[in-house]
Simulated scan of single mutants.
Amino acid sequence: MPKSSLGPTPKSITGGCLCGSVRYKITYPDDHDFDSSNYLCQCTQCRKQTGGLFLVSQQVPVSALEWTSGTETLKEYAASESGRRGFCGECGSVLFWRSVAGRTISPTIGSVDPLYLFGEGAGARFGGGEDVPAEGFGRVLCSGTYVEWCANEIKGVTDDIPLLFRGKRLQGNAED
């Protein structure tokens, strides 16, 4: 059973894009370590792609992710020689980042269904939920184990957000 020091962990989660044309399910391996798989990134590429100050994602084995809808609108952008950014070509939702050479994929936490992030009856819309605690799994899914590209902090803005100081702070990315 996957474990975390931050509370209960999901066996699986679902998510997808804003328009609903791309849907996925992640089934966590029994040995998944939630405490060391969360990433917050402040790089310029993540900011430009999301329109936000940072991107929150969780790294999982590629084999843990299953597309549960058609993938006709799923697009990838080669942001660099080593990385690909997945998004819906219809609505523009950012869905993941993945290394070309890696066996992992990092789905964005913002694309996770509300049921798993904050619970509170969101199950009526997304189904299931019998194993979801009332408060959801948001805390364990976005704990900020690694905060990447801290060299790109915005003075007076992202250098003062408590979430960005929870984990290991890296000037580059976790592979550096």
Rank of each mutant, 00 (worst) to 15 (best):
residue 153 E to M: 13
residue 132 V to L: 01
residue 18 L to W: 11
residue 158 T to D: 01
residue 121 G to N: 11
residue 132 V to P: 05
residue 87 F to R: 10
residue 174 A to G: 00
residue 175 E to T: 13
residue 161 I to Q: 09
residue 25 K to A: 14
residue 75 K to E: 04
residue 13 I to P: 00
residue 96 F to Q: 05
residue 149 W to S: 01
residue 45 Q to Y: 12
residue 103 R to D: 15
residue 107 P to F: 00
residue 130 E to Y: 06
residue 38 N to W: 02
residue 110 G to P: 00
residue 56 V to I: 14
residue 89 G to K: 04
residue 167 G to E: 04
residue 12 S to N: 12
residue 64 A to C: 10
residue 84 R to F: 02
residue 128 G to E: 13
residue 140 V to G: 03
residue 26 I to M: 09
residue 91 C to Q: 03
residue 158 T to C: 09
residue 139 R to W: 09
residue 134 A to G: 08
residue 57 S to W: 02
residue 36 S to H: 11
residue 126 F to L: 06
residue 173 N to S: 05
residue 126 F to Y: 11
residue 17 C to H: 09
residue 142 C to L: 11
residue 161 I to L: 15
residue 146 Y to I: 08
residue 65 L to A: 09
residue 82 S to P: 00
residue 153 E to T: 06
residue 88 C to R: 06
residue 117 L to E: 03
residue 10 P to T: 01
residue 113 D to M: 07
residue 20 G to V: 08
residue 97 W to V: 13
residue 118 F to V: 15
residue 122 A to W: 02
residue 13 I to W: 05
residue 2 P to L: 07
residue 46 C to Q: 11
residue 101 A to H: 14
residue 3 K to I: 12
residue 102 G to Q: 08
residue 152 N to T: 03
residue 60 V to K: 05
residue 168 K to H: 11
residue 84 R to M: 11
residue 92 G to I: 04
residue 128 G to M: 04
residue 67 W to T: 03
residue 52 G to E: 07
residue 124 A to T: 09
residue 93 S to T: 13
residue 103 R to F: 10
residue 51 G to L: 08
residue 65 L to S: 08
residue 78 A to P: 12
residue 109 I to Y: 00
residue 26 I to D: 05
residue 111 S to H: 01
residue 42 Q to V: 01
residue 123 G to F: 06
residue 19 C to F: 06
residue 139 R to K: 15
residue 73 T to E: 12
residue 31 D to V: 07
residue 88 C to M: 10
residue 160 D to P: 01
residue 163 L to K: 07
residue 2 P to S: 09
residue 2 P to K: 04
